[in-house]
Write a protein that binds this DNA or RNA. Structure first.
Length: 574
DNA sequence: ATAGGGTTAG
């Protein structure tokens, strides 16, 4: 086929914005005869395709190229960076090197960005060495990319060294250094740089305001913000973000409402802020008002539902997002939240739908997503599957350990839970409240009172204070072992108000061991805290019946009949 | 082509 025909064909493909199997085959066959310049053009133009197809497409082209020319490769690397496929970008850069192709400035600066994003310092340093070798020292884009890389790695010394050696410093290079000090947390030096800069643009101001915001110094942030001669959406967004971080939602909302041009980022910040405060309704309000909903906005709202005990709504919205007309695809983050929702619902079926979806569209697993799946499988009883995923993790962090330990606990694998806990301590991962909940649940399941006590009492050693839920598990553990008075004493000593789960656990134990005296006390508290729940009444009725107090038992059961359907008491620690 | 603002797991 002739080149000009190919170009026509290509343009046609590009205008229909979709490629099926046959299109791809024709194209790939044709590509073997293409000039590198044309391949480059394809890669650049493929930006008009749907995002999930792009990387696949770029990879297809590259795999079928005969000419390993730097120009298309450099473009491809930059292209992958622009679409947040940093891992792929790095892989491509390594391929480029090993095939003996001379890198260009595009590939070098893009690969530096990619190494920065995936947090791989050694990779960036090796690029630095090559920069020297290939004589790109004087190229301002490469120098800036290097400077920014070291800044992002927190290596402010090397960053400064690169900065000092730069031939033509401009605002961007100054901004990179400034942002380096801000990231490093050295606000005084950052302010010094800010004051000494020969020229400041809006980015410099935004970086400085954001620095104060991140440090919680909102007064200073606001002072600078007021001083700005012009403001961009980011200027307002960093103020919003600062107020959200110190949980001042009203102030954040004030800035949100006052800003002249809200964008998707402003909305996402507000939604996640409301989400952290448990204010789902306000988050919904923001979400519903926004006309142009993008992927990240959906992600934020789905996460909000999943994090605030609305798993059904989370999955509803996830389904809505999948509507082909919307032209948005879920990504790892969406899936992590959706999996978390499935886990809360115990819905393995939806969960495995997600797993097959991942392999269909080629979403690679990461530790976040794995951890969500671990939790889901562990809670649904597939503890072996959970272990398999757990062993495949790149880095086992506190969340992964906690999910695994809790999973073992509720599946009756107390020994494994303890083993995991010890392994975790050995690898210097400090436990938090959720981990303790997991390990206590394991002891509870196995009926190991002394071990439970020891763990409960050791919490202070890690700077942790038992929450109501921890007390509830301890009460359950003591109660089931028949140590009812001890359980009662523990409740009395609680520094926080016990919720119905705590008294409910005691009531359950009183039912188990037929203790009327304490049962009445516990039941009274339960009725007070959850007047609508009939489950507690039937537990007390049982105790009365066992003790031969038939009248009281009968009276309670009639109460229950009247109030209608039997409700199960809430067990908040499960 | 280089800089600033956003979303994820127990």
């Amino acid at each position: 086929m002739h080149i000009s025909n190919l170009s026509t064909l290509l343009n046609k493909f590009l205008t229909i914005k979709q490629l099926n199997q046959i299109h791809s085959l024709i194209l790939i066959n044709a590509l073997n005869h293409l000039e590198p310049i044309l391949v480059r053009q394809i890669i650049v133009s493929s930006g008009s395709f749907h995002q999930t197809h792009i990387t696949k497409y770029v990879k297809l082209i590259l795999n079928h190229m005969q000419h390993r020319d730097v120009s298309p490769l450099g473009y491809a690397i930059r292209f992958l960076c622009q679409h947040s496929q940093f891992q792929d970008a790095v892989v491509l850069y390594v391929q480029l090197q090993s095939s003996g192709v001379f890198p260009n400035t595009y590939s070098v600066s893009s690969s530096l960005k990619a190494y920065g994003k995936i947090n791989y310092k050694v990779g960036g340093i090796s690029v630095h060495a090559q920069v020297h070798k290939f004589g790109f020292d004087g190229v301002v884009y490469v120098q800036t990319a290097l400077l920014d890389f070291y800044s992002k790695m927190g290596d402010i010394r090397t960053a400064h060294k690169v900065f000092d050696e730069m031939s033509g410093k401009n605002v961007v290079s100054w901004n990179c250094v400034l942002s380096g000090y801000v990231k490093y947390g050295d606000l005084d030096t950052a302010r010094h740089v800010f004051d000494e800069m020969p020229e400041r643009d809006i980015v410099s101001w935004n970086v400085m305001v954001s620095g104060y915001g991140r440090a919680g110094e909102m007064d200073r942030a606001y002072a600078l913000f007021k001083e700005m001669s012009e403001r961009s959406s980011s200027s307002w967004n960093v103020m919003i973000r600062g107020y959200i971080d110190c949980r001042k939602m009203e102030l954040a909302r004030g800035f949100f409402d006052a800003m002249p041009q809200r964008n998707s980022i402003s909305c996402i910040s507000m939604i996640s802020g409301y989400s952290k405060c448990g204010d789902v309704e306000s988050a919904e309000e923001i979400f519903d008002k926004e006309q142009e909903k993008d992927q990240l906005l959906y992600n934020a709202m789905i996460a909000c539902y999943a994090q605030n005990g609305r798993p059904k709504k989370a999955l509803q919205l996830f389904d809505e997002m999948l509507q082909p007309t919307l032209n948005i695809r879920p990504d790892k983050m969406t899936l992590a939240s959706a999996v978390s929702a499935c886990s809360q619902l115990g819905d393995l079926e939806f969960g495995s739908r997600i797993e097959s979806y991942m392999s269909d569209v080629g979403i690679r697993m990461d530790d976040y997503l794995s951890t969500a799946l671990i939790d889901m499988h562990a809670k649904s009883g597939s503890i072996d599957k959970a272990f398999e995923l757990f062993h495949g993790l790149q880095k086992k962090d506190i969340v992964a350990y906690s999910a695994m330990i809790l999973g073992c606990g509720i599946n009756g694998r107390g020994n494994d839970a303890v083993k995991l806990f010890e392994e975790m301590m050995d690898s210097n991962v400090a436990p938090n409240l959720a981990t303790i909940t997991g390990i206590l649940s394991a002891y509870n399941h196995a009926g190991l009172v002394e071990e439970g006590y020891r763990c409960f009492n050791s919490m202070q050693k890690y700077g942790l204070f038992p929450s109501v839920d921890h007390y509830a598990i301890m009460v359950d553990l003591l109660g089931k072992a028949g140590r009812l008075e001890e359980a009662c004493e523990l409740i009395k000593k609680m520094p926080v108000q016990p919720h119905s789960g705590v008294w409910g656990a005691l009531l359950l134990a009183c039912n188990l061991h037929n203790n009327l005296e304490l049962g009445e006390i516990a039941a009274a508290k339960c009725f007070e805290l959850e007047p609508d729940s009939t489950g507690y009444r039937s537990l007390l009725a049982n105790i009365y019946a066992y003790s031969g107090r038939w009248d009281e038992a009968k009276r309670l059961r009639e109460d229950i009949q009247e109030s209608g359907i039997n409700k199960v008491p809430g067990c908040s620690w499960t």
